[in-house]
Write a protein that binds this DNA or RNA. Structure first.
Lengths: 229, 229
DNA sequence: GCGCAACGTGACAGTCTCGTGACAGCGGCG
DNA sequence: CGCCGCTGTCACGAGACTGTCACGTTGCGC
């Protein structure tokens, strides 16, 4: 899981340690040395989580947290505060300001990572996918299953996502680039022809069950899921 | 959804914070600073949910919870306990006493609201207490026991909670993160792979009794409890 | 019919996921 | 104290999955 973490911390040594640990845990790190820099960085692209030092030059972390909660677009971004021992008494204020968790210095990087993961986990909401039926195929989102009539079809992760996307976006042509964006996720680089291969695999998986011809090639453009031949 | 929440908490700062958050979420808040006040408030009008601090002057939250469970009219009122870090080990005792969920301090108001809503939702659907049967397995909620046919199965605490969760949420895939949230509790920091190990242990516990294949792996996504292969 | 570009297909090596056994820490209990 | 049940983590390996390539096939304009 690739996540963007904004680290707002003026002390270089801590910043570097944190950055090192986060990168090792496959997260992207953005720095900000003070509140102003943080606000700039956020307005650019809101991160998935904000690590906020309690004491900052100019504006305290708490003020910044309050401000972010009011801001548009960052109201739901989880915040974890870094506090030194003894500052804990203000915890309640922080919680009121919408801070999600605290990590008290000195902390182990291991603990920090664990906390971050826990908060991220909590933050990401439910996946509200029902079940869709089309062209003799049925895909059960919650159960993560695919049926052709009554028989269940075994299907790989990528094939599943691809099929799911197609069934929720039927009767429309998508280019390879669009499919890569939607099914693979925007931030990965893979060859466009890879889509071809997965289309092929999906067709091959479905074909023995008589649900043929649902995924159509539109030469020079892309692919389309359609009930009509 | 207008609900009445009884907050039993002696520390004023936390009480105020909680009250503030709850009111913002359109809930009615009743205060009680100790167990006696709580009992009085309850006998007046039973609330829809009780928020109970672990440590109270006079009587611990746990005792109060037990007492409420025995009381007429409050036996079904959901209880959420507030515990400080480090008191978590008694979680099992709490579950036995009929506590519905735990929130570990420090918590964010958002998390608290989310938990409260979840518990209320669950209480509405009334799946809590009875015994559930599925796939040749029977789980006796109140007695905390598991049967395969007529023979009882010895099972550890975590395995029990995991199985219980699965049986009350069958035919649906859950990611490791979701399982950690639901089975371990939202504010505990464990590796995701730990789920694998407990799944393994649960499978191994059930397997000698012929109830095989109930917990299925959905590669790249999570696990699913299902009677169908 | 020809040539070209687009697409289908099979193979393959690297990567990732998951199952599994082992192990150390921690309370509980005799 | 030593033993025991339970838990979280780790390391390892088998197997599934994936991205890419090379080559065959098809469609299309001329």
């Amino acid at each position: 899981m690739h996540k963007r973490i904004l680290v707002v911390e003026d002390e270089a040594s801590i910043r570097d340690m944190v950055a090192f640990a986060l990168r090792k845990a496959d997260m992207e790190v953005i720095h900000a040395a003070d509140a102003r820099a943080a606000l700039v960085a956020i307005s650019d692209t809101p991160p998935d989580l904000i690590l906020l030092d309690w004491m900052l030059p100019g504006m305290t972390g708490l003020e910044l947290a309050r401000r972010l909660r009011g801001e548009q677009g960052t109201a739901e971004v989880p915040i974890i505060m870094l506090t030194a021992r003894g500052e804990e008494m203000d915890r309640v204020n922080g919680l009121e300001a919408g801070v999600d968790d605290y990590v008290v210095k000195p902390f182990s990087t291991r603990e920090l990572i664990a906390r971050i993961k826990a908060v991220l986990r909590r933050a990401q909401g439910d996946d509200g996918a029902g079940s869709i039926e089309s062209g003799g195929l049925r895909i059960d989102g919650p159960a993560h299953r695919v049926y052709a009539g009554d028989t269940q079809i075994e299907i790989g992760p990528t094939e599943y996502r691809l099929l799911h996307f197609f069934m929720t976006h039927a009767e429309r042509v998508y280019s390879r680039a669009q499919l890569l964006d939607q099914v693979w996720g925007g931030s990965v680089y893979v060859e466009e022809r890879t889509v071809d291969v997965h289309i092929r695999r999906l067709r091959k998986t479905l074909e023995p069950f008589g649900v043929d011809g649902l995924i159509q090639t539109v030469r020079g453009t892309g692919y389309r899921f359609s009930v009509n031949p």
